[in-house]
């Protein structure tokens, strides 16, 4: 039975929504925290809602709210936002070849929606290729945007009735989501090396209060994963010599 185009698109939209749903729910406490904190730090409702509406970033929002409330200079606020957001450069680079060829409308939308969460769902080597996968990506990313906005608005409305939520450990919800996303992707040694190096260095750099802690830890970890893969590949090549000569490219495709 052939799927009609419309039916196929609907199915992909549904899949995008359902795949993102656990992440949408997981950011509920974090979104409420952002919204309520803004109100508690004397932001107007408009300002508090503009944060998720146009800045659309979890940790950057939270840190900026505290900085603005403490009358930090504009330069400090913007520099901090830049540092926290700089990990997104890596996401753009990783998806560059797939997204740069898209029509403007899709490119801007997906660029705006390119959060940690959408990137985590984009690791398939064909993601964003072809219209159906684009529908999947936009619905997944778009639903995350809508839910993030909703939770923030809920926080803004409840804001003045809620206690200070910053010490309730709500960040654990973020951590457990990323555990759920990362652990099942550890399917070979290079990825395991990447994860272990990123784990160790991110903690060390953070304790050293190094500003680019996250990005530096990630970059070094990526390089370690890359070197591990090259090392394994060379060893495999040497073992194969003289036994059976299958070209590496053929084996890779199996």
């Amino acid at each position: 039975m052939a799927l009609t185009k419309k039916k196929a698109r609907w199915l992909m939209a549904k899949k995008g929504f359902l795949d993102m749903l656990p992440l949408n729910l997981a950011v509920l406490p974090w979104g409420i925290l952002c919204g309520s904190l803004a109100v508690q730090r004397d932001f107007s409702a408009l300002e508090a809602i503009l944060m998720p509406l146009i800045v659309f970033a979890g940790s950057a929002q939270l840190v900026a709210i505290e900085l603005i409330a403490n009358n930090a200079s504009l330069a400090t606020i913007l520099f901090t936002t830049f540092i926290i957001s700089s990990r997104h450069f890596l996401y753009g680079l990783a998806l560059r070849d797939k997204l740069k060829v898209l029509p403007t409308k899709w490119r801007y939308s997906l660029g705006f929606l390119l959060t940690d969460e959408l990137f985590a769902l984009s690791s398939h080597n064909k993601s964003f290729v072809g219209q159906l996968r684009l529908v999947y990506g936009v619905v997944a990313g778009g639903s995350f945007y809508v839910f993030w906005l909703l939770w923030n608005v809920a926080g803004v409305i409840a804001g003045s009735y809620l206690p200070d939520l910053t010490h309730l450990g709500l960040d654990f919800a973020i951590a457990v989501t990323f555990i759920a996303l990362v652990i099942p992707t550890i399917i070979n040694l290079p990825i395991l090396v990447t994860v272990i190096v990123a784990a160790l260095l991110s903690v060390v750099f953070k304790l050293m209060q190094f500003e680019l802690d996250l990005v530096a830890a990630a970059l070094i970890a990526m390089y370690c994963g890359y070197l591990t893969e090259r090392f394994l590949y060379k060893k495999k090549d040497m073992n194969d010599e003289g036994t059976h000569k299958i070209s590496p490219s053929v084996k890779d495709s199996i």
Partner: peptide, 14 residues
């Protein structure tokens, strides 16, 4: 390797 690297560098310090 960017996804496992960046996501791990976010959750482990938490």
């Amino acid at each position: 390797f960017s996804a496992p690297a960046v996501l791990t560098a976010i959750w482990v310090p938490i």
